[in-house]
Design a protein around this nucleic acid. Structure first.
Lengths: 127, 127
DNA sequence: GGCAATACGGATAAATTTATCCCTATCTGA
DNA sequence: TCAGATAGGGATAAATTTATCCGTATTGCC
């Protein structure tokens, strides 16, 4: 497991949030769990672009930061479910607002993002 | 300048927001500009941990994504000012809410972040 | 038996981001 | 004249994140 070498910056609330939410898939993972996709395999189907390996890593970090809880059912085949903690649930309205903002401005966002992406990628965008 | 090699994921609003806001200092930069710190040198004093080089890179990306505008005054010594665009301004309430959430939960956040950081860093945290 | 589904994680590679180092330029003030 | 402030950016290194590859295990189904 990778261990950070540099000191975190925890000056203000924004810094603290950054530490726990900064991760390519974390916000989406929280959102999908909120929507009832509790099992790793379900999450992976919802977010096909993340690999199982990375999904596990990010779930572990969210768990370490007490935003989600992991429950392992002692059955075979294995069954694992993640749920939002009360703490994690308080983030949901914020994530919801961010998503709404993104949806409202999606044309513009799509345009500015693609304008500055490599031309070869523009055609390949996953929509 | 670095050019991405992988395709972006632009499925939903959350993905789109991620593309323009994902960057270690971007949210803080937007917030400080909102607070009236318009010049690069002012921003750097507000965020001492970012280097001028990286600050410039992230400002450029925010500009490319039309969240801020750059104004160069033809004077000597050089004077440059960034301001939020109307588009960028619509993000401010969201960033404000995130900051409030972080402030409200700062003890807990600090605890969970430090609990999983390398012990050697715990003492060095910048507060 | 062979295959798919469930889930986990080490080792390593690739991609990306962030940081460091160094150089350019002009003006002001000591 | 020299230090310091202003601003910019190339080249490269380091840190970090994300992805790929592979191996472990069990059960059920055809």
């Amino acid at each position: 497991m990778y261990v950070k070498k540099t000191v975190p910056y925890l000056n203000c609330g924004l810094d603290l949030v950054g530490e726990v939410l900064y991760g390519k898939w974390k916000i989406r993972i929280l959102w999908f769990i909120h929507q009832g996709n509790l099992r790793p395999s379900e999450l992976q189907r919802k977010i096909p672009d993340v690999t199982r390996r990375v999904l596990n890593v990010q779930l572990k970090e969210l768990e370490d930061h007490e935003l989600i809880t992991k429950k392992i059912y002692p059955v075979m085949p294995p069954r694992v479910e993640y749920t939002l903690t009360d703490f994690g649930s308080t983030l949901i309205p914020l994530i919801g607002s961010i998503g709404v903002w993104g949806d409202e401005h999606q044309e513009r966002l799509r345009r500015v993002i693609l304008k500055h992406a490599a031309p070869s990628l523009t055609d390949a965008v996953k929509t």
